[in-house]
Amino acid sequence: MREITRHALFWPVVALVALLAANTIYRPDFLGVTILNGHLFGAPVDILRNAAPLMLVALGMTLVIATRGIDLSVGAVVAIAGALSLSFIATSPNPGSVSTVLLAIAIALGVSLVLGVWNGFLVSVVGIQPIIATLILMTAGRGIAMLITEGQITTVTSPAFKTLGSGFWLGVPVATLVAGSVFVLVALLVRRTALGMLVESVGINPAASRLAGVKARTIVWTVFALSGLFSGLAGLILASNVMAADANNAGLFIELDAILAVVIGGTSLQGGKFSLSGTFVGVLIITTLTLTVTIVGISPLVTPLFKALVVIAVTLLQSPRIRESFAARARRRAARPEEVSV
């Protein structure tokens, strides 16, 4: 029992279960999943589908944070990827064709990767602090997206592209499958090879790692590039979800949600140890929280406060010091009767 409560993911999972329970109280069949028009339908399916973009962004963010970095530009990359892909499809002669859509996706992902490489270059080669280096793209990126869409909200009709965000494959949302596969791929890559350990060593002490023969610069460069690539994929899913590229609002504040998911999942902002499964739970908590606001019917006026309270509760429960003081109090209470008897 004690081992379970001591597990790093215990409290985040408790928070997630509590949120789901709260929803079930307001809506008894909340967790029910039915089959509708040949695909799964229900609140859990909505959560998994809506979690996909944040999952991708948070995955990249976890790796970046593990190297003691941070990537603020993810929201801007989301906007650029959406703007690029939809603008390309809109101007192509044949918006519905699969080859057009694949080309649009390739272009958007290619540019996102380049943007990630740019961030990595600033951080690892030029040596600018990550928060400043990525702040550049965070501010400039939305302007670039605005240039691409010419200040309009670009919309297209393309069933092939729509599949990415709203489609289903074997009854499961395509967005969830995409994010899930990327997640599994990265998990295998970092945990079944030495890559994860190298990332952690760079996060703990870049200079020592370099002296020990770890190519710190390449590692940092790689994680920023991956973060850009994953953000671009998230941007494609978000754009496809509503079939509109909104340069101003797409992925707005997603960097904060992603950082929050990473932190809730138990990865330290100091770098070093990271937990992909923790990030997974963190993303689910944040996505469920958004749906909870609607299901429980929290007034829009107090929504930010409600969200903040949940986040404070989760982070406090996770803090070793707070847990320690709770445990100490419990021990004292348990010890007192014995003292009396002696």
Binding site: Y26, R27, N50, I153, L238, N241, D246, T290, L291, T294
Partner: peptide
């Protein structure tokens, strides 16, 4: 925004 309009409507439809 569209994205949030869609998300909130999904919640309403579940509720």
């Amino acid at each position: 925004t569209r994205t949030e309009g869609k998300q909130v409507m999904e919640g309403f439809l579940q509720k």
